[in-house]
Amino acid sequence: MITARGLSKSYWVARHRRGALGAMRSLVDRSGREVRAVRDISFDVAAGEIVGYVGPNGAGKSTTIKMLTGILVPTAGEATVAGYVPWNQRKSLASKIGVVFGQRTQLWWDLPLIESLELLRFVYRVPVDRFQANLTEMRSLLDLDPFLETPVRQLSLGQRMRGDLAAAVLHEPPLLYLDEPTIGLDVVAKARVREFLARINRERGVTILLTTHDLADVEHLCRRMIIIDRGRLLYDGSVEALRQRHGSHRTLVVDLEAGATIDGFVRDGVELVRADGPRRWLRFDREAVSAASLISSVVARAPVVDVAIEEPAIEDIIRGIYEGGLRAEPAVSE
């Protein structure tokens, strides 16, 4: 469905000079610096896959997606998407792909949601019976009926995202790009988006490429993930293997009662990585120690006010890949 070979994108950022004189100099002297947003990235996505495209902010995720939709021309490299070269055949490709940008919307702000959805029938020239069948299905899958007649500006973020998801798939694209689809959503809304994506993948065979910096999205949806950082491909493989290699640590954060202490607490596979006031960070290997047994052994030692468990953040895993292992590095980042 997607083939990318050596995809690269560099931007030329002009040097900014101060003041009016500087601005005039900039008109003549085009010196500046090159920003390499994406560097030599290659991968394939087969029909029916869900692939997580993961990396911290500014890693080049959106730039890649934009090249694969055809809205951005790469500096170097090749790609075909659903049989088209995206940046040469953008309009032909348009009916084969659905796109959702989590922080944007394609819905008409002042009109009831249904108006935006029905307009798409004319945009993509979908036969009316096919369109109605799809719409009926989306209404039940995404539970749109309670707010179908509500102006989009009055929808909650989660409702709006459900509307945008419906809008992206009503023309039955075989490929769906999602750029941060769960950003800003609460837990319930996130779960709903994930469930929807899993279903259209399973039932309609829609191929999905999903960018996110929320590892939970990837864990719920994807078998395979691609990690990029600073424009470079760091990892392409199964989620499970990556977790085994780099993400097996979690951190227990405990707040002790005033005056209490767990100094000298020792247990195999557990390491005290940080202490700040009454708060302690204990990193533990999830294979060797269960969270429950660790909590009970801490509680047995000192009175505890509160506990929390932190999963490794993507940034930590990426740092782990750089360092070739996590052991030397504290797992909690502020």
Binding site: R90, S95, R104, Y124
Partner: peptide
Amino acid sequence: RTGDVVSDLMKPM
């Protein structure tokens, strides 16, 4: 400015 223009430019119209 908001970038919404991208989804309009991507449509076959």
